[in-house]
Simulated scan of single mutants.
Amino acid sequence: MEIRELKTLEEMLPHLAILQELYPELDQGNYERMLQNMIPNNYAQIGVFNDEKCIAISGYWLGTKLWCGPYLELDNVIVSEAARGTGAGKLIQQYLEQKANELNCSIMVLDAYANNFKAHRFYYNQGYAPKGFHFIKILNEDGLT
């Protein structure tokens, strides 16, 4: 397995199928429009490839907040159903932790759905712990994927 950085629209678009495992309604047009908004705002992706096939993907954001300084946020860590248990998720975690350290980030953060207990267990095992609640207020339900 090898990790590749995906920083451009052209590098990210071919891997929509992995994201559709989590977001089946996400189509090419909407994905492209979202990426066009996200990439200029410190968003990139990494992919895990096995024999030239992308088997896992994670977006990440780089930012700074007053309470913690520089941080790296994992966004939509998805390992294809067929590749679960291969270590691809751990490879993503290790790679992004190394990147965060190289960029002098104080913390790494992520969101996991409240009912995704397998993800909770995985992230606890990787050294993550809940710090608080992530509150949302839905303003446009049609805008959610």
Score class of each variant (00 low, 15 high):
residue 88 A to F: 09
residue 6 L to Q: 11
residue 63 G to A: 07
residue 30 N to D: 07
residue 99 K to S: 04
residue 125 N to S: 15
residue 124 Y to M: 08
residue 142 D to H: 00
residue 117 F to E: 13
residue 15 H to I: 11
residue 124 Y to Q: 15
residue 75 D to A: 14
residue 16 L to Y: 15
residue 116 N to G: 06
residue 101 N to H: 09
residue 105 C to Q: 13
residue 102 E to I: 00
residue 113 Y to G: 10
residue 42 N to K: 08
residue 22 L to V: 02
residue 72 L to P: 07
residue 89 G to Q: 08
residue 35 L to A: 13
residue 46 I to H: 02
residue 106 S to W: 00
residue 85 G to A: 08
residue 64 T to P: 00
residue 132 G to F: 05
residue 61 W to G: 02
residue 79 V to L: 04
residue 99 K to W: 08
residue 111 D to C: 13
residue 70 P to E: 06
residue 144 L to I: 10
residue 69 G to R: 00
residue 47 G to E: 01
residue 61 W to T: 04
residue 138 I to D: 00
residue 86 T to Y: 02
residue 66 L to R: 07
residue 4 R to H: 12
residue 100 A to I: 07
residue 48 V to C: 12
residue 134 H to T: 05
residue 26 L to E: 09
residue 16 L to E: 15
residue 82 A to S: 15
residue 15 H to R: 08
residue 10 E to Q: 12
residue 125 N to D: 15
residue 119 A to M: 06
residue 17 A to Q: 13
residue 119 A to E: 01
residue 129 A to F: 14
residue 110 L to I: 08
residue 51 D to N: 14
residue 142 D to E: 13
residue 25 E to R: 11
residue 22 L to Y: 07
residue 118 K to D: 14
residue 91 L to A: 15
residue 116 N to L: 10
residue 9 L to S: 14
residue 49 F to K: 06
residue 25 E to Q: 14
residue 89 G to M: 05
residue 137 K to L: 08
residue 127 G to V: 09
